[in-house]
Every structure is written in structure tokens, then in C-alpha cells.
Nucleic acid binder design. Sequence first.
DNA 1: ATGTACGCCCGTCAGGTTAG
DNA 2: CTAACCTGACGGGCGTACAT
Length: 265
Amino acid sequence: MDGMVDENGTVDPLAPSPPPVAISSVQSVIQPNQQSVIQTAANIQPVLGKGNVILVSKPNSVIQTPQGSLHALQVINVVETTASDDSYSDDESPKKRRDLLTRRPSYRKILNDLGGGEIAEPKVEQTSSEADSELSSHSIPYHTVIPAGAIQISSGEGGQSIHTLSMTNSGTAGAAIVQYAQGQEFFVPVMAQSGNITSGGGEDQARKREMRLLKNREAARECRRKKKEYIKCLENRVAVLENQNKALIDELKSLKELYCKQKTE
DNA sequence: ATGTACGCCCGTCAGGTTAG
DNA sequence: CTAACCTGACGGGCGTACAT
């Protein structure tokens, strides 16, 4: 996975990269058998666009990828001189392009682009036993609409253990706080005898609102969790890039020394 | 002990995005 | 088009560190 540098110069390791432009003839920055240490890549400039990634074949490098020694170079701040706004189709209107540039993709989109890899997506719908087994292992509160009263949820493989949930203020109208054994609390609308949620006037509306709030509450929690993961990922990416940068500087330094040595001989 | 600042987490709302 | 989802912003509660 290759990172992306946005307009502000911040690294976005999870941002989807445009299709890479594989250019095998591009010279690496460091070529032991070349006369110059630094090789310009003037021959490829016309194909470069902002956001393009060039895979550079570079043997003997300190950075090795699973694909060999392909390096992904992110091209940024390339001045667009050829295309005016008139040349874009409706889908590429300046506004839309600006939106694409300024809006960071949602965490879900980022994760989808990752192939559903790094951050586990909890199931949306699950049975109470499934949910409770998740509770047991991750301490993630499971929300569901349940009738007021004593609640026991079997959990674990084959339901070996029973978790007891105690409800506070369940006698009051509106809602109850369900307390999970590990200290997690969550809100559950109280069901009346008929199965409807008691809410005074506009029962259906109140029930819908409660459901919406409940879902949004969970969504917010999930969103924050993903955001944390994302930030952690960014921090890891920074560490990796700093190491790579250091290694490249060292490599350049040693090759420069070698070059100067050969020159004086 | 009390007050204050700070950080963290949470629930809610609003508005944008996505999926059907 | 619309319902569902996602996420930034906001305000509040709580715990901790520090000064008084």
C-alpha cells in the first residue's frame, strides 16, 4: 500500500492511489553504473500528472518491496499547464475536482479500498449470542431492543457461559439503562406490554427517534474507533517514512563518497 | 480541600455521502 | 429519490495533575 500526500503536504497512507503508471525505463535516483549520481527523468515528464504514482525499478536499494524493488513515487504539485477548465467534461468540472481534492474519503471508503483489511468491520446485524460473544472478547457494548425485565444472554462457543444484565430505572417511562457485567452501560428503550415503546404522545415517532439515536450513538462510537485506527495508521506510516528517508540519505551519502573516491583516483 | 486546566470519551445534531 | 449511514462539530461528564 502506498501512501498519498495531499495538497497540504500531509501524508495519507490509506488514501486510494490513482492507478500506478509503470515506467520501467525511468532511471533511479541512484544508479551505481551511471556517471551521475542524480538522474533526471525529463523523458517522462509529459505523462506526469498530479497524484500519479510512478513505479521505479531500483535494484540494490535499501527499500525493498514484495514486487521486487519497485518504488512508488508520488508526484505532487505538478503544475497543470495544458488543460483548461473548458476541456473537462461534466464529471470533471472544476467544482467536482475541487471536491475530490479537498474531501478526504470516508473511513469506510478508505477501508474498502484497502480491501477490507486492517480494521475489522463489525457485523451490522447479529444474533444476541453472536453479539455477546463479541462482547466477551472485545468489551464492545451490544445494543438491541429488548423488553424490560431480567435479561440473560448465553454466550461463548456453544453458550457455555451466561451473562447477566441488570436494568436500572426500568420502571420509569421511556428508557432503561442496561448494565453489562463488565461495567459497560447502554441505553435501551423500554417496551410496553404490547411491545410498543412507551413515549407519551406520538409513540411511533418517539420509537423511531429512539432507534435513530441508538443507531447514531453506535455509529459515532464506530466512527471514533475507526478514526483512532486511522490516526494510528498515519503515525505508523510517518515512522516508516522517516526510517526510509534516513536510509536513503545514508545511501546517497555513501554513494557520493564512493563517487568522489573513484573520481580522485 | 478546593479550584483550574487539560485530555479523553460520550451522546447528539446537522449535513454530506452512499446504496438500493 | 430516499432511507440509511458516516462524520465533523459541539457541549457535557469524568478523571488526573497541578497550584493555591
